[in-house]
Simulated assay, not measured.
Amino acid sequence: MNSRRSLAVAAGFGPRRRAGEGKEPVKEWKKAAEDILSSGDRPLKIFLLGALDTGKTTLAAFLANLASAAGLKTAVVDADLGQSEIGPPGCVGLGLVDGPVERLRDIRPVYSYFVGSNSPELLSFTTVTAAKTTLDRALLYGAEVVIIDTTGLVWGRTARFLKSTKIELLAPTHLVALERALDLEHLLRPWDLLGSPGMRVVRVPVSPKATDRSRHDRRAHREKVYRQYFAGSSGREVDFSKVALFRTTYLTGRSMDAAQAEPLARDLRCDVAHAEWLPDGMFVVADGYFDLDGLDRIKEREGVPEVFLTKAEKFENLLCGLVDRDGILLGVGVLGSVDFRRRKGVVVTPLDDSAMARVAGIHLGILKVSPSGEEGGKIHPNDI
């Protein structure tokens, strides 16, 4: 049996068809996969690009089955934040393929990088960092084939910046585009013109089985994932003076005592839950509504160029990532409440006592999720 025939059989197109293999009878997919896996590139880094509902995840599973069946150590980087299937919600996940899979959720998760949102918007740099770090982790595991599934964000300035930066940084050997008409040409054209011998652009048609899902359906799916992940969770009190806090200004400066914060409360005409000095100004957390006119009074009296003012409620119900001293994600939680004066908070998480004892840092996301698993919108990263 020649190599192409062997690959076709392994992928489920021959008599040795297995569960979950060969579900997509798209001949262009079959030929593209055979050409990619028959190339001499190792490790193979296959970057999947496509709009919403084009079959990227199905193609990722198809490629994973084919590569694994061909005897190649295969990994999948699930960077589709809005509809991720590998690892905890709000993360870029890494899975190692142990055998035939129906969906990406069947793949064994081995690593996750916390992003803290359901889309890359507002967190472009974090998203790119997450994808690169997770790819590097896959290579450390010795993966010969890494399949990178991405979000359906392909239009607009953010998409152009994000996808171009991610492609440049991850340096895939193959950029596989699932195209409807010419919807991806604005992203592909620079790479076509560059003509890099180290990266091949491969165009394949959208799956004929791909169906459009509404925004409501996508949100319902995400909320189902939250409920499943947080089932059986409990609230854990965390002492913020003993753990590292990331992606927030809180507790990065010199905290003020009650007497120092009292004039700020008068100027803002509200309770001040927390205030601290920063090299470039002040960070003030107001408890409730405040008078913006008070900012100018504070700047003039204190002689600071900037006052970073936010509300205590911005911190409530934020998705957060709990990491150990090596920065490895232990699990995800929801920051239920913060007692700014005691410098403590309650994190709702499924982590047990043993895992919580290893928590050395908390990364705050921007997505709010209620204890019942409902999305509550996003804050801006600068809000905290």
Rank of each mutant, 00 (worst) to 15 (best):
A67M: 02
V359I: 01
S255E: 13
A261W: 00
V304G: 05
L66D: 00
L364D: 09
T151N: 15
V323F: 03
D353F: 07
R18H: 06
E168H: 06
S112Q: 07
A8F: 04
R227W: 00
V146F: 00
R213G: 02
T57D: 02
G71K: 08
N65F: 11
M356F: 10
V348N: 06
Y226T: 05
P15R: 13
F230E: 05
D353R: 12
G333Q: 02
L81V: 07
H216P: 00
G345A: 01
A70P: 03
N2M: 10
P208W: 07
D287N: 14
G82A: 08
A51R: 12
S370R: 00
A360C: 08
T126W: 13
G12W: 13
T349L: 07
I328N: 14
V206F: 08
A258F: 09
T129M: 10
G55E: 10
R266A: 08
D136K: 12
Y111F: 15
L318S: 14
R341M: 01
K163G: 06
P172L: 04
P25N: 11
R236F: 08
T248M: 08
T127D: 08
D217L: 13
C270K: 11
S196Y: 03
A70F: 03
D324T: 04
N382A: 15
A265P: 12
K56L: 06
D183P: 10
T165Q: 14
